[in-house]
Write a protein that binds this DNA or RNA. Structure first.
Lengths: 264, 264
DNA sequence: GCAAAAGTGTTCTCTATACACCCATGG
DNA sequence: CCATGGGTGTATAGAGAACACTTTTGC
């Protein structure tokens, strides 16, 4: 049995274990080379881009489904993942997108999927709940799903047109990320174990999309007492060597719990 | 045809126009006699309490469904209504609540509803999206729905045990209200047209659940420039007469849009 | 020595907070 | 006059922002 047939059969069999009309979509943020990035999937057949998402099993909580999607796509578990908004327009297709039943049939045919059960499922209206995750790109191993040829980290500026209302979902996720910057475990999730103060500052700047004042940033962050100063980092550059820092996990957890109280 | 039969027939007929597995629940906040209140419904048959909620029509957006529920229960339109979280556990029933199919059948029978179509619908798993609204109690005309004998404003402290996970939904709504206090059109939605500074302060105190310093509150609020000072209010009490204030709607809308920037 | 980046210090402004003071009102 | 609550003033502490100054590094 070829790959497609196997997928189609498994999917068809799983459909009656799925909760209809609900889905989850994940906006997975990573940080690399001083840029905030989002994990996107590209469809095999028509090269359209979308967010990683999935359906909910009847015996599975919505939040668990989001965790599962994240695990399946990134290999990461025990990750910072937060629900942020539910998108429930009656027609979530883009204005220019062909969302007729015929178009859906055609898209499935392009994959070699002929099952009427799957076709019926795909034509349903789905109310989707958006989750955003913060992950350390170096630790991930992005895996495309069956529908997708590739799984790519795109910077915010590079985000292409996405299917349905996915661009809107990403926009809203970025908005939440910015607003909640002061209450989120940003650094711990997105940075390597040891990092310089500049690394952390660039991260905050990438998220906020504006520069922050160096000396004030340093003082404010250190005053929170969640960082431990380690050895100096000799980059080889002709300038003073910065200290490396690591998170004091206990204090960090405590701060997050109490609400960091940090503002820009 | 009696009332129940008519309701059952209409509901049954409407079911195939409804989106399965999704619902909305509204936490409707009001303010009266210096107390923050929530609108609750009491079931006719077993006296259990619940939030006002409803289903979504196939051709209706999720947000519109929430607005419709609010309109049906309070008679209010064009109201401040905000989505805050989606509750999607696989079993949203209370641990002590009998959520078996037999129990559902029995509850419907108590209403005199025998339709198997309705019974099947009610046994579905529903992922519900929570909305919170701020309304002026004096302007509302609470209307119980068919299932409910009464519609009552309860203070936060008075909230009884509710069905399913509705207590959790209320808790979360209050949390959002407090956090977003600085960005929400609190006063305009919850107070009468004219009010004293004390009225406004008591409102904030009721929401936050803690006292605020009188003179500082006054200065901070006035500095925002969203209030217009009107005539004095002679209460007849043996003390200095306070000014009445009203919202400058234009400035208020502008402030809300920009983010009030107000903190306690 | 020089350039570049890191670390620390200083100043100014604004806000929050606590509390003092006087004012208006009706008994 | 008094009690009560309303309106305004003031002093202090802390945060944020801008910017100056010193230190470290490799060339």
């Amino acid at each position: 049995m070829d790959h497609t047939k196997k997928f189609a059969q498994e999917f068809e069999e799983s459909i009656d274990r799925l909760l209809p009309n609900n889905s989850v979509d994940c906006v997975i943020f990573g940080y690399e080379k001083q840029r905030l990035k989002v994990l996107l999937l590209q469809w095999k057949t028509n090269a359209e881009w979308s967010l990683p998402g999935g359906f909910i099993f009847k015996d599975e909580a919505l939040n668990s489904a989001a965790h599962r999607v994240l695990r399946e796509r990134t290999g990461l578990d025990e990750i910072f993942l937060n629900q942020f908004y539910t998108f429930g327009r009656q027609n979530r297709a883009r204005p220019d997108q062909n969302a007729t039943e015929e178009a859906t049939d055609k898209r499935l045919l392009d994959f070699g999927i002929t099952s009427p059960v799957i076709a019926e499922w795909m034509k349903k209206r789905f109310v989707t709940t958006g989750y955003f995750a913060l992950v350390n790109i170096a630790k991930t191993n992005p895996q495309p799903d069956f529908m997708s040829s590739s799984c790519e980290w795109k910077t915010i500026a590079e985000i292409p047109q996405l299917i349905l209302d996915h661009n809107e979902i990403v926009e809203k996720a970025i908005g939440y990320l910015r607003i909640q910057l002061n209450y989120l475990p940003i650094g711990l999730s997105l940075l390597p174990e040891k990092f310089t103060m500049q690394d952390l500052q660039k991260l905050y700047e990438a998220i906020l999309g504006r520069p922050l004042e160096r000396s004030n940033f340093q003082r404010k962050i250190l005053k929170l007492g969640m960082l431990v100063r380690k050895e100096k980092f000799m980059s080889g550059a002709a300038n003073k060597a910065p200290y490396l820092y690591a998170f004091d996990q206990a204090k960090y957890a405590q701060l997050i719990k109490e609400g960091i109280g940090f503002s820009y």
